[in-house]
Design a protein around this nucleic acid. Structure first.
Lengths: 137, 137
DNA sequence: ATAATCTCTACCGATCTGGTTGGGATTTGG
DNA sequence: CCAAATCCCAACCAGATCGGTAGAGATTAT
């Protein structure tokens, strides 16, 4: 199991923007250069984040990207979900109607447990948490 | 994020074998039929599990597959790792030398947290746990 | 007006996924 | 000893995804 580059880049960009504060829009080129990511690829990643309402973009000269909400109100899980799609591990979670065996399926117990472990790990942390923890080291 | 069919089938097959007990080798065709999986695909899955030492196969008539160890000593995490490869989320976990930014990287905190959440959820449960829980419902 | 910037579409090679096909090797049971 | 059951293995396939590139367009500050 591996986190995609898309997801990794996306989160790093979001954290970068969170650290920049709300003062000004940050151009794509700056994020890409500072974080060492291929700009055209990052562009499409930020597009997804914008479509998901996590990012706000201003066009034209001295435009760029900003967080759409406060860093403290954006959970990491939202970023991951926006980039990776809904993180349903198997078809039958949470929709147990998807499998006729759902009632007797022992494996399903593991996927449920895993699902809540992942959700807990990602939804319990905000971008603000990350910038604060990172600074304090 | 999604569990692959390979992984899902593999775990279900292992649980099935755990429920069968150690009495006799169970032929592939039986597992496939009982669990509703495509037999040739399942075959390659079981091959991986055998190569990883989790499964024992006996050839010839009245042959089949058995767990290589007791169900109580096989963690679900082992099964998943055997099928899915080592589950390192990003290159820098646990090998922080893989990224020069590792020290200052805030995102890395999330991946570490996620990593231990996943490991905890998968390594803390054995096949025996699953069969027992499933039976008791 | 022009330069900076976001927006969008199309393409690309590589890899993974979920299979199928078919032929072999091995061992049991008759 | 032979036939059937069973595991073993390699090759192939279509489709999706990934990571990335290329290039043309729209919009806005200066």
């Amino acid at each position: 199991m591996r986190i995609s580059s898309r997801c990794e880049y996306g989160l790093r960009a979001m954290v970068f923007l969170a650290a920049c504060g709300h003062s000004r829009p940050v151009p794509l080129s700056e994020i890409a250069a500072e974080e060492g990511m291929p700009a055209p690829f990052l562009e499409r990643i930020l597009a997804r984040l914008r479509e998901s309402g996590l990012l706000k973009a201003t066009r034209g000269a001295s435009g760029g990207y900003q967080l759409a909400r406060e860093a403290g109100s954006i959970a990491v899980g939202e970023v991951v979900t926006a980039l990776e799609g809904p993180l349903s591990l198997v078809g039958c979670i949470p929709d147990d109607a998807a499998c006729e065996r759902a009632d007797s399926c022992a494996s399903r117990l593991v996927w449920r447990r895993l699902d809540s472990a992942i959700t807990g790990a990602l939804d319990g942390v905000t971008l603000e948490d990350l910038t604060r923890e990172a600074v304090s080291r």
